[in-house]
Design a binder for these strands. Structure first.
Lengths: 214, 214
DNA sequence: GTCTATACGGCGATAGAC
DNA sequence: GTCTATCGCCGTATAGAC
């Protein structure tokens, strides 16, 4: 894992305050803004104290990832448990959540370049994916699809990936077609998992060829 | 734009050699590995000389982005021109190209955190998107789709976005369902744009609800 | 267990010498 | 055009105070 040096206890209140500052810095200015000095300034402590709790920056990032991932898994499991009849919507909304998506995007970008963090992100991603896939598979088994339907893992890929893509493009100031993409996907979700108050919708396909081929 | 200082000529051979090194560094170790010292060492010159051509690191990145984007646009336009009957495939394969995708992913991540680079990336993205959208729209007009079909801009979003997502996940060591996603999408492409030698395929839908709703 | 002070080398950036 | 000197910020390591 990370550094084998003596560090502050996991239960320390200061530790949590520092991690709060890390998340805020990452959301506001990106991971590059996370420096010992910046985190310390935000919490009103000395840089050395931050380093006492997190001997290297990777330790700091890994701790932030784990705390956030734990909270996300709890939130996801709660939502799937309290809304067992609409797993697709739950996964979709979970992936679209503002704070979570922004942070996980940042962590992913970070993992792309930091070896020690890559495995941490990958482990988290796989755990979340397993919970989501089980839910989507359950729905698939219960309302058997026709031959043209996507297999659960492909559907899940789109369900979680499309919001990520949108976030990614928004990050560089491009937002073309985003509204249309969301609308198209939600139309599909509405037909797959009708809203309680909504009127019934006819079976809907999201992506078909136009026929009329030579 | 960037810095208004005196810099080396655009036609300089040294300049191109330096940009080659930048691309290589970005692909091999990520944008964080691009430092004056690293670029200089790779080209066998002094760091000061690199800084002479590119006064700030942002200047260096912007120059690399522009050179690469110009080449990509040429390549895309060529492919669309020489294969006018399969724009979807051309866009799909273009987005899946190894070197291009890796570099543009890296540039996008960079743009997420550097103000001056963000607008550069956005401008490039919009230019490429326009060329691609025109091609997809043309195909849409020619083989009129049925009501269930996706509008061109949504289709284009998936066409270019899915390879990006796959690259992103590969970057952190996750590759679950990627093969299935590619297969599902290519099955759709095969039916929309039959391969020359391939047998005819029946109309195929990529994403439908399973019917059987309450 | 918590926290501070200090030191080191690498970095981007600037000014200016040849 | 080419290169050096210098500045301030960074991560990191360590020694030690409470």
């Amino acid at each position: 894992m990370a550094s084998p040096r003596r560090v502050g206890a996991e239960t320390s209140k200061t530790r949590h305050v520092l991690l709060d500052g890390v998340e805020q810095l990452m959301r506001d200015e990106g991971y590059a803004a996370v420096t010992y000095r910046a985190v310390a300034a935000k919490a009103g402590v000395t840089p050395g104290l931050v380093q006492y709790y997190f001997p290297t920056l990777d330790d700091l990032f890994v701790a932030a990832i784990r705390r956030r991932a734990g909270r996300n898994l709890d939130r996801l499991a709660d939502a799937l448990r309290t809304q067992p009849d609409r797993p697709l919507r739950v996964v979709w909304e979970f992936s679209r959540d503002e704070v979570t998506a922004a942070l996980m995007t940042e962590f992913t970008a970070l993992g792309n370049h930091r070896k020690t963090i890559r495995s941490e992100i990958a482990a988290i991603a796989k755990r979340i994916r397993k919970v989501q896939l089980d839910a989507v598979k359950k729905r698939w088994r219960e309302s058997r699809a026709d031959d043209g339907d996507l297999p659960p893992d492909v559907l899940l890929f789109l369900l979680t990936g499309i919001p990520k893509l949108i976030k990614l493009e928004e990050g560089i100031g491009v937002s073309t077609a985003h509204a249309e993409v969301v609308e198209a996907f939600e139309r599909y979700l509405d037909s797959a998992e009708p809203r309680p108050g909504g009127r019934k919708r006819k079976r809907k396909s999201l992506l078909t060829t136009g026929g009329r081929r030579a």
